[in-house]
Write a protein that binds this DNA or RNA. Sequence first.
DNA 1: CGCCGACTTGAATTCCTTCAAGTACGGTGG
DNA 2: CCACCGTACTTGAAGGAATTCAAGTCGGCG
Lengths: 249, 249
Amino acid sequence: MLSEIAPPDLTVAIRKLERLAALTDVDRDALRRLPYRLEQCEAGRMLIQEGQTASDCCILLTGYACRHKVTQDGKRQIVAFHMQGDFLDLQHVKLPRADHNVQMITQGDVAWIRHGDLHSLMRDFPIIADACWRDVLIEASVFREWVLNIGRRDARARLAHLLCEFAARRAAAGIGPPDAIELPMSQDDLADATGMTVVHVNRTLRALSAEGAIVHRGRQLRVGDWDRLKRIADFDPAYLHQAVSSHMS
Amino acid sequence: MLSEIAPPDLTVAIRKLERLAALTDVDRDALRRLPYRLEQCEAGRMLIQEGQTASDCCILLTGYACRHKVTQDGKRQIVAFHMQGDFLDLQHVKLPRADHNVQMITQGDVAWIRHGDLHSLMRDFPIIADACWRDVLIEASVFREWVLNIGRRDARARLAHLLCEFAARRAAAGIGPPDAIELPMSQDDLADATGMTVVHVNRTLRALSAEGAIVHRGRQLRVGDWDRLKRIADFDPAYLHQAVSSHMS
DNA sequence: CGCCGACTTGAATTCCTTCAAGTACGGTGG
DNA sequence: CCACCGTACTTGAAGGAATTCAAGTCGGCG
């Protein structure tokens, strides 16, 4: 296929914005003309570091990334996972000082866009601005769900919820079917995202396997029983504010 | 004082926006002319309920409110506290379906503004729109810090952090000095905000008292030793993205 | 005065962490 | 081709932080 040799472009990001607002041809055109710098990243590449002030905004084109914060004594908390098409730091356009880190978890491609260019884009194309608003607001909604998840659900539900969310967002992004998943993150990452320890993530993962909710071998994960997993997770995708996928309803 | 008999107006909200962007006289004028409906709320009044679609946006003028979500089995998680001047549901202008509840925790006054009016305001007055952007983005930053707080800090640090944040925001809002605080929330609320149980909140609170970090009698709270409390909490106010207050630096 | 909600305290239990060793696997170099 | 190595994953046992259950006290309000 051609897409395997052609360099990646902003198509996935435009597709994501299409899901957030009804873009017109004018909007699409403006987006396609947006200048950007392409970067091919290794796994582990730190894109943005807490405390830093950025002048460019980055969009994830391929691969997976996460955002995380660290306590004084070095405990890491992942606050979000990202996949192709996601803006990784839209907020830095308005709040230049980074309050968290952004890091690749797999290898992948990133597009860097000047804040100034984004600023004029949002000023001149209100529908695009609207889509960006929605993106930021949905992200905030996901943070709230994570607070609930970590604060009030036990390890089993918590982990199940994270898997459900990942599957749902993956499906919405058109990456693949929601029930045969290649997890990009290590069990360490899952632990840091759920506020658990690696050891307990491991045990909980196999507990979920044992009861047939999931089938996993390493990072190959299949959802054995969607309804059961969703019930365990107390998962209701409404907080994602996305058009309901047929698989997830 | 006159302010005790005059009905509350949008002044506190305008003052908050002033802290978020450099408003001009034109902006201030537009804000003062904004039509709104005033509501005097009892403690416990549900302003917005999850699942509901709202046509008005509410601003807290006096008193305190919180936002919370509930799991299937009835466990409540508070995701944010709010004080005078705060927008309580700016997001519903762009995402009409509420993904969480908004509730008064004390009695207080609320101004209801039509979404349409806010929409035109933000279209016609870019500096106000900018301030709203910042408000939403800072709120998201606070959510991230809460994820870290609940996910990776132990009960003592977690509660201390919540108190530090509350004191800092309270001071920034000009409500009073940051070291003699009347807490508006019950220990139940503190528990639901930190992902703990009431019992453990109670014990942790007196542990903090015992070591001299705070002095509390019921809801009267004095910070006994700021530096100690901040150290316990691992509190760095950078994530609040506010001009640094002299008391908190 | 009595009642109710908020706060407090103790004891037993549990879920999760910590510590300490494993095993499996993919890559690298001899 | 195989020995070596590092990283990620797995498992067991002991310990601890926080929950649960149960029974108080305190203080404000009708």
